[in-house]
Computed example of a mutant assay.
Amino acid sequence: MPGILLIAAGKGERYRAAGGQGEKLMAPIYSHQGRPLFCVVLETAIASQLPIHIVTRPDNIAIIQLAADYNLTVTVLNSNSMGESIAAGVKATYDWDSWLIQPADMPEITVSDYHRIAQALQQHTQVRLSWQNQPGHPVGFSRQWREALCRLCDENGAKSVIAPSLLMLNAHPGVIIDRDFPEK
């Protein structure tokens, strides 16, 4: 069974540079009744009924507490890059059959998005959602890519592992929308 790897280990630098206050992932999302960004993302992942593992920083106390509240596994590290976070998460879930890599600042991802990737991974080794030819998330990798994912270490995330045979599935605009900036 595939699992969702929620990457919540960023430093929120663009968010703060744009005037955001506090922890980006706990900022209210007004288009979602003012609920915290991470809560929206986490609730959707939970609704998918797929296994979830969270990668976050030691100072993200609220995220660590939410993981505990929902009895979810978490990797805590002072990550220097998206690649390092992905590698740590894959190593922590080494026994999974495949991984749906999902940045934790994308509240428009749906349960259907997760299920489409999980279903496609039954016949493909890499799957990614897109919108108007723009690559989006989640990105799915089968067990075949486990060792390569475990070696990631730079800010390019899993881009260096993407193969020409990657299956792109057309989706909706939400698969390319992240929340790097505070809502006005």
Rank of each mutant, 00 (worst) to 15 (best):
G3S: 09
I4Q: 05
L6D: 09
A8E: 11
A9W: 08
G10E: 02
G12N: 11
G12V: 13
E13Q: 09
R14S: 12
Y15D: 05
Y15S: 00
A17G: 06
G19K: 10
G20P: 07
E23H: 12
K24F: 07
M26P: 02
A27V: 05
S31Y: 00
H32A: 07
H32E: 11
G34R: 03
R35Q: 15
F38I: 13
F38C: 15
V41K: 12
V41I: 13
V41M: 13
V41H: 00
L42S: 00
E43Y: 03
E43S: 07
T44K: 05
I46A: 05
A47Y: 05
S48F: 03
S48T: 03
Q49H: 11
Q49I: 07
L50C: 02
L50K: 11
I52C: 02
H53N: 02
I54H: 06
R57S: 08
N60S: 10
N60H: 15
I61V: 15
I63F: 05
I64D: 06
I64N: 08
Q65H: 12
L66H: 05
A68N: 10
D69P: 01
L72Q: 13
L72I: 11
V74F: 06
V74M: 08
V74G: 11
L77I: 12
L77C: 06
N78I: 04
N80A: 04
M82W: 03
E84C: 13
E84R: 00
A87D: 04
G89T: 14
G89E: 12
V90A: 13
V90W: 14
K91D: 12
K91Q: 13
W96F: 15
W99P: 08
M106A: 04
M106W: 10
I109C: 01
I109T: 02
I109R: 04
S112F: 04
D113H: 10
D113E: 00
A118C: 07
A120W: 15
L121N: 07
L121D: 01
H124R: 11
Q126Y: 09
Q126A: 02
V127T: 11
R128F: 02
L129C: 10
W131I: 03
Q132C: 07
G136M: 08
H137L: 09
G140A: 08
F141V: 07
F141E: 03
S142D: 12
S142I: 10
R143F: 04
Q144K: 04
W145G: 01
A148Y: 13
A148C: 14
R151W: 14
D154S: 15
D154T: 15
D154V: 08
N156S: 12
K159R: 08
K159S: 06
S160F: 00
S160I: 08
S160H: 04
V161G: 07
V161E: 06
I162P: 02
A163M: 04
A163F: 04
S165E: 14
S165L: 10
S165D: 07
L166V: 13
L166S: 09
M168P: 03
M168H: 10
A171P: 00
A171T: 04
A171V: 06
H172I: 09
H172N: 05
G174W: 15
V175S: 01
V175R: 00
V175E: 01
I176D: 09
R179I: 01
F181L: 08
F181E: 01
